[in-house]
Design a protein around this nucleic acid. Sequence first.
DNA 1: TTGAAAGCGCTACCAC
DNA 2: GTGGTAGCGCTTTCAA
Lengths: 338, 338
Amino acid sequence: MNIYDIAQKSGVSIATVSRVINGGRSVSPKTQETVLRVIQEAGYTPNAFARGLGLNTMRQIGLLVSDVADTYYANEVAMLEKALRKAGFDVLLRCTGTETDKKKETLAQMLKRHVDAVILVGSSMQEQDDNSHILEAAEQIPVILVNGCVKGKNIICVRCDEMEGVRCCVRDMCSSGCRSLLFFYHTLSFSCRQKLKGFQLGLKECQEKGTPAKGSDVCIPGGFDEIMASAENYLREHPADGIIGADDMTAVAVQKATQKLGQMVPLVGINNSILSKAATPAISSIDNMAETMCTTAIKNLLDLFDGKRVPEDTVVSPEFIERESFVRKSVCGQEELQ
Amino acid sequence: MNIYDIAQKSGVSIATVSRVINGGRSVSPKTQETVLRVIQEAGYTPNAFARGLGLNTMRQIGLLVSDVADTYYANEVAMLEKALRKAGFDVLLRCTGTETDKKKETLAQMLKRHVDAVILVGSSMQEQDDNSHILEAAEQIPVILVNGCVKGKNIICVRCDEMEGVRCCVRDMCSSGCRSLLFFYHTLSFSCRQKLKGFQLGLKECQEKGTPAKGSDVCIPGGFDEIMASAENYLREHPADGIIGADDMTAVAVQKATQKLGQMVPLVGINNSILSKAATPAISSIDNMAETMCTTAIKNLLDLFDGKRVPEDTVVSPEFIERESFVRKSVCGQEELQ
DNA sequence: TTGAAAGCGCTACCAC
DNA sequence: GTGGTAGCGCTTTCAA
């Protein structure tokens, strides 16, 4: 069953059938009706491959993410997929892992698949130094970074100012009496670097404000169990009175460690994922506005497809979600206003 | 840059170039070498759409899941994607939600995309009564159910005997002294029905064994917060001394409720996801062997593509992962052996 | 082993 | 408004 069959049954040419399928402009209402009825009756669907060949697109968009098993990324992928589907695009999903070479290779493969755009989900998709592969990809198709930033033509960035979020959090912890802070993380991604900067900046500002606090960052590679175990060892030697986890998973694991040691330490996570709710005590978390980032990213992409001008770098502000593990006595930013 | 350019530069016909690209059979080593070198130098990649049109496949496989944002499904998607990529297939991802019509429609759309197979991830992709759409799809391409079961030609099922897992768990709880059990769930999926059956079966067996316990199942639709709130209300009126959650998320939410009420109740979740680790006390969980299911599913699919005969229904056994929320005094199945 | 040529099913341009 | 037809880039059959 192909376009020729439909043309024959309708008593028209394939050109007319094609027109009807693609929006029916300059087709008489009568012809249109006939053809549509035949298509309906025959249960005909145009061949996607042939269509792709002719139009040079199959309305597919590549989603690259280091790991969908990560709750936070999974959530973003879900939101992006939903928005893209609504706009009539299919999603080609690839997990890349964190190795630079794998990420580059995967991006190259996506280009060969002739996707209409590529979305790099999460800051882990961005390299610290050399992002030339992203620039190269952008020469062919739009590249969207969700929570990342690479400047270049045909590249759309949407990100959260996590540095600011952590900076404020540090200041809030200091004003709440914390004097010895720890920042735990497991991977030094782009986003993590920003958070670390915020951590240092916050400490510095506390010093200037006359409430000096010392702080260290500690890297524990691995998953939940490794972090929990190593954090326990670390905290036994280096107790702290305020802890920030680079993400909720890390925060929960560290929380477990403090509980084992009988230390009751103010604790904050990042991402505001279900893990922060699930923990006991529930963990206060810095929400990096995944939903806002995702909807903005897709909106910008669709605008770009429509030929509109689009902001090449959108920055959204994080939001502190207060739960049980740390309740602020004062709120950074608001004190200045008073 | 197309196959004609390569043919010209190599001094051969496009037929020969095509042969070289597709495995180089019946091509002289010398020609082969020349063509490969030209392809290399030109950085040529065959057009995926044209290839799809010719071969009637683009080596893409559709993954249908009710919601990737669900930690458990996300984990399965990650494992499936990895295995498929290794076998040279791309993954087309679609979240369907739980409405039957949406699921049917999405499946139909996947078929139109000419994917090589469809994988339905999670028992929520299966309807209780009418699965004719799955049978119909299977007339065109292989359909794989991960943790589901629909009998039919060209349908491969891999599932976990969750009924058995819950049945054993109930018996273990009874033998450990629980006399009033509660089973909480939020959606009555295929898998949930199995678990419920196991719950009832376990209770019945306890009765027969002379350790009668009463039990009820309670459905709370909604997400984490709704479950937590409603469970608290329910438990205030109907305290229990043993609780099973249909999944870890539910278990954690109910755990929170018990903690608010000051009830310290033996509790078991299902899925053995990171949530069960993250909770405090850590939640014992029935592991339904997601990894085994996924690897088996892909292995069977690849075998099917290879024309081998493949088991149409594989059942794996669940595994009880003991943590802090419930420690078994005796183990179901082992007592019989003694 | 190689080449010529006929599809694959559709889109889009150019006539009428 | 409609039809004829030349591509799109590849695979594959049939001859040579």
